[in-house]
Write a protein that binds this DNA or RNA. Sequence first.
DNA 1: AGGCGTAACTTGAAACTTCAAGTGATGCGC
DNA 2: GCGCATCACTTGAAGTTTCAAGTTACGCCT
Lengths: 179, 179
Amino acid sequence: MSTLPTSAAALERPPQTAEAPRWLSAEEQRVWRAYLHATTLLEDHLDRQLQRDAGMPHIYYGLLVQLGEAPRRRLRMTELAKNMKITRSRLSHAVARLEKNGWVRREDCPSDKRGQFAVLTDEGHEVLRRTAPGHVAAVRQALFDRLTPEQQQSLGEIMRIVAEGLQPKEAGADLPWLR
Amino acid sequence: MSTLPTSAAALERPPQTAEAPRWLSAEEQRVWRAYLHATTLLEDHLDRQLQRDAGMPHIYYGLLVQLGEAPRRRLRMTELAKNMKITRSRLSHAVARLEKNGWVRREDCPSDKRGQFAVLTDEGHEVLRRTAPGHVAAVRQALFDRLTPEQQQSLGEIMRIVAEGLQPKEAGADLPWLR
DNA sequence: AGGCGTAACTTGAAACTTCAAGTGATGCGC
DNA sequence: GCGCATCACTTGAAGTTTCAAGTTACGCCT
């Protein structure tokens, strides 16, 4: 296909900029706005809740959770970034901050000298233990308590589909989505 | 109630920290993780799309859209912040940046000297006109094209419920949620 | 063994957000 | 018409994220 003459190529690629854009219908707009409102409000809500009760934003808390669930409470940086859907750069800065707090420690990977483990410290584990109940309560109150079981299930399906669609096509390949 | 003896008060307020926290079930966790993954990936995706094609992050784009839809292409700062579910402070900084780009202009409110209007400039309108099709396409591709009509409807309902729950209880009152 | 493309991770600066404090205006009670 | 609590908005600093560029190590190819 890429070897076709340019004129044919131009024909087969109807310039998207010239196509009449398919605007969102009134109903689609309502859905999209609701999505934006709900996600902004919820993120904001949980950020404040955790900043207040645990001294860190929501995503940092998520990092500790990941580490807490991992074997030996440690994860390679790239692995952790992948689990949390964030860039390595962002993770580097975040771990640096968590390290200053004494909640995470870095360890060299013995088998690959480029590699680093992020390890949950005992202090980190303790923070998690202390603040997890409050956080779960906040999530329940804002989300689960307001939805019927059917809605919860539906939400799960929808979110899986969306996440799936935005993720790398390849399974075991490298991580093209990580910048 | 607040005048009861402390012992009774202690009784009537079963210390929430002592209650056995209702952890998320395995299924609830799956839903919650899917939600977090999808929302992070989508936000990231749209931020990149708009940064690339319009030179601004998603939320700044949203501000322009709001202004574009408003009568006389202008909105009071507080109104705009409320529509977008962000704090006034954040909006102040954002508008300052958009002003530098020449996409928004501030105007004094004649009837209330404290007030400011954010006004969409012609350049701002032009940017919107030029980049809207691409953005709609991105939203469709990431979200609507992947969902059945039933799922779209369900998503709308769910998100309305969640947003509703996180918003100020009072209708016409002031804006307690704005910090 | 020596290159060389790439992987894993970090860094610094610029952009953005949050937080607390600050500036004037408003309007209401007296 | 004078306080004074509140409102509308801004500001600066500290914290976080992005972006591009950097460092070191790995693995493969010859």
